[in-house]
């Protein structure tokens, strides 16, 4: 009897320990379709959510989504409120100084200008972008006046109501906006590839987590399932690995 009790206590304890190790809290913004969004049942959804749900299953870890605002994402990762950032975050040298990234699961994002006036001045006018993004940094250096917004949606709205001449954002984000605007919005100039692709951001000290997902991303790149998922969410013109 004693032995059974002891054994079951041990099993319970080890199970508790294993799950304590294996839950990974993933932060996302939920406002960046089709990368991540809050769907109509109020749950996180999108390319990244589907991809990571699949990868967590492959890596046999339990993942939990945390919806949080974009601007405070890196500091909150550092203070341990969650374990990783999966929010369409481009890998850049500046960000590499403070956090680590896995290898990219999406190729270097092409960013593009969209405006309501086809002659909008993107080099000297007012250009809207989301705060603390690779695009905002690019606009700041382009000579245009940068207007920053908390969400990409507000940056688009700024062009609609005339606050800004153009919006500069990820072309995958802008594509449905332009296509569904009934000709109100037009692309300006050619898309610009920025950064080293989109990766999962982790704390510098979390080398094990980084290694796990590096390997899983590689597996999905090799067997073509990552490409399939990209076609599903970004259409036939989606970039492929």
């Amino acid at each position: 009897m004693k032995k059974i009790l002891l054994a079951s206590a041990l099993i319970a304890a080890s199970a508790g320990f294993a799950s304590a190790q294996d839950t990974i809290r993933l932060a996302t913004e939920g406002a960046y379709p089709p990368f991540n969004l809050i769907n109509d049942s109020g749950k996180p959804d999108g390319f990244e959510v589907e991809l990571f749900d699949k990868m967590c299953e492959m890596a046999e870890v339990k993942c939990e989504w945390v919806v949080t605002d974009w601007d405070g994402m890196i500091p909150n990762l550092q203070s341990g409120n969650y374990d990783a950032i999966v929010a369409g975050m481009s890998i850049t040298d500046e960000r590499r100084e403070v956090i680590d990234f896995t290898q990219n699961y999406y190729p270097p994002a092409k960013s593009a200008y969209a405006a309501m006036d086809p002659d909008a001045d993107i080099k000297g006018g007012v250009v809207a972008a989301q705060i603390n993004t690779i695009q905002a940094g690019y606009v700041a250096e382009s000579g245009a006046t940068l207007l920053e917004f908390a969400t990409p949606d507000e940056a688009v709205a700024a062009v609609r109501n005339g606050e800004a001449d153009a919006v500069f954002a990820d072309s995958d984000y802008l594509k449905p906006v332009v296509e569904e605007s009934n000709g109100q919005f037009a692309w300006i100039d050619q898309p610009v590839p920025l950064g080293d692709g989109i990766g999962m951001g982790v704390r510098k000290s979390d080398t094990e987590l980084k290694a796990t997902f590096d390997a899983t991303i590689q597996t999905m790149k090799d067997d073509g399932s990552l490409n399939e998922l990209m076609s599903k969410w970004f259409g036939d013109e989606a970039p492929q690995f």
Binding site: A20, Q21, D22, T23, D83, V98
Partner: peptide, 19 residues
């Protein structure tokens, strides 16, 4: 550096707690 990292047992609430 900028990171604040305590052991898993000291996390409030624990990491594996439901959202």
């Amino acid at each position: 550096g900028l990171e604040f990292r305590v052991c898993p047992a000291a996390k409030i609430p624990p990491n594996n707690a439901p959202q």
